[in-house]
């Protein structure tokens, strides 16, 4: 090889012909177009073709009645923040892990929920949960069992209250929770609107007449009426038990009532409960002569009274004063008798 050619880049400074320059420019433009197309392409993306998205895990059953529960259109100033979600009994625990059992044991059918944002306060949002239960009693049961302290009763429906950042109500067989991200006035106003819209869209079938009407009013603790769907007072056969708290001075008691399928069953269950109490160390106490056929049990410094009257099973639970217990039981028994006679 000729040694004169060892110098590298003999031509580094050769003049670049116009054609070459134009070609370079053209190629660079093509690369630019490719880059831009790819950037444009990546915005077109549908993640649901790759993996199930949380929202489509549950699809509405074809033919099932569509609940309008998540319709926020009557309320102005709300924007949807998330797609509507729905859960059935099998998937409920995916949404409310830990509390699902409460709903399932009460007779749960379906939960629909959706988040909304306030148009004029985009940093505030609220979420509406509509639990559709088997019937009104189931809805009342889950409502009453999680009633918040410091609640303010609302006159939206028979059973409705407002806590610091939430509105909770029962309408027909729906239990509705509307939870706000804060407790500001703006949110509360929108929550109230949303609740009212729901109540209007879901008129109750008829006024429900049940055991709740039979609880004496005197000394009753406001909003203490509740319905326990199963395993009330730790006694497994006790299901569908309505109860209310009473307070006189510093003495307290709880009254309970439950309608059973037949008088015989009511009586049988009353006996079983008494046996259960005695099993756990209860001592039978003689009742006053004049009193109705109660069974009175003293247990752990408290008093329990159990009776059956027709199909109704009733009594007093954990009363710390025998007089109060007897008085309450008598009033309850009287109401129960009237109800039985009326039928």
């Amino acid at each position: 090889m000729n040694a004169t050619f060892h110098k590298p880049h003999l031509n580094a400074n050769r003049s670049v012909p116009v054609g070459e320059r134009r070609l370079s420019f053209f190629i660079l433009s093509v690369l630019g177009i490719i880059a831009l197309s790819i950037i444009a392409l990546q915005t077109r993306f549908d993640p649901s073709t790759w993996r199930a998205q949380p929202a489509d895990e549950i699809q509405p059953q074809p033919g099932a009645a569509v609940t309008q529960g998540l319709d926020a259109s009557p309320v102005s100033g709300l924007q949807a923040l998330s797609p509507p979600e729905a859960y059935d009994a099998a998937s409920l625990s995916d949404k409310i892990n830990g509390k699902a059992e409460l709903y399932l044991s009460a007779g749960f059918e379906r939960l629909e929920n959706r988040r909304f944002r306030l148009s004029d306060h985009p940093e505030h949002w609220l979420e509406q949960f509509v639990y559709t239960m088997d019937d009104h009693a189931s809805a009342f049961s889950v409502y009453s069992q999680q009633r918040r302290a410091n609640a303010r009763t609302l006159d939206l429906t028979v059973d409705a209250y407002q806590a610091a950042n939430g509105i909770f109500l029962v309408q027909d067989r729906h239990y509705v929770e509307i939870i706000g991200s804060a407790s500001s006035e703006a949110i509360v106003a929108k929550m109230t609107d949303l609740a009212r819209a729901f109540v209007q869209a879901h008129p109750a079938a008829a006024a429900v007449k049940d055991e709740r009407a039979l609880f004496p009013e005197t000394d009753r603790v406001t909003d203490s009426l509740s319905l326990t769907a199963a395993n009330a007072f730790g006694f497994e056969p006790f299901d569908q038990i309505f109860s209310a708290k009473y307070r006189r001075g510093d003495r307290t008691a709880m009254a309970f009532l439950s309608r059973r399928a037949s008088a015989a069953q009511a009586e049988e269950l009353a006996e079983a409960y008494v046996a259960y109490l005695i099993d756990y160390g209860g001592q039978p106490v003689a009742r006053p002569e004049a009193a109705p056929p109660f069974q009175v049990i003293a247990i752990l410094d408290m008093y329990e009274i159990v009776f059956s009257q027709g199909e109704l099973l009733g009594g007093v639970h954990e009363a710390d004063d025998l007089d109060l217990a007897l008085e309450l039981a008598e009033a309850l028994y009287r109401n129960a008798s009237e109800a039985s006679d009326a039928q």
Partner: peptide
């Protein structure tokens, strides 16, 4: 621009 530079840009790109 030299075409060689363009080729290198293209490869890098």
């Amino acid at each position: 621009m030299r075409i060689l530079t363009t080729r290198r840009i293209s490869q890098l790109f």
